[in-house]
């Protein structure tokens, strides 16, 4: 069990502070009114960067077996497939929804 990566406390704090900073940026970009749909794109982009930092450095994927990264990517790919196929239906309905 000697080859497990041990992050230094300084490094972990650096990761935490960068996440706090990006949270601030997430809120701050709503103060300048970015026209739709770009406000959504920016919000999701920042959230994705934050999530990327968490999985890479807090969940140790950077130092981990690559198979675990593959699992995450597969999970995300199937999530996109779920959304993509659903939208192929819901975006192209003439009469959107029955009663709800």
């Amino acid at each position: 069990m000697s080859d497990h990566h041990i992050s230094s406390a300084k490094f972990l704090w650096g990761v935490g502070i960068s996440l706090f900073f990006l949270t601030f940026i997430t809120v701050a970009v709503t103060w300048i009114q970015i026209p739709a749909p770009w406000n959504v794109v920016v919000a999701i982009a920042i959230a994705t960067v934050k999530a990327g930092i968490v999985v890479t450095f807090f969940m140790n994927l950077y130092w981990d077996a690559k198979f675990n990264t593959l699992l995450l990517i597969m999970g995300f790919a199937f999530f996109l497939l779920l959304i993509g196929i659903t939208l192929l239906d819901t975006l192209f309905r003439i009469d959107p929804i029955p009663s709800f």
């Binding site: 992050s7 972990l12 704090w13 990761v15 935490g16 996440l19 706090f20 949270t23 968490v54 807090f58």
Partner: peptide
């Protein structure tokens, strides 16, 4: 995020 840091 703070709690993620403390878990790490």
């Amino acid at each position: 995020i703070g709690s993620s840091l403390t878990v790490a």
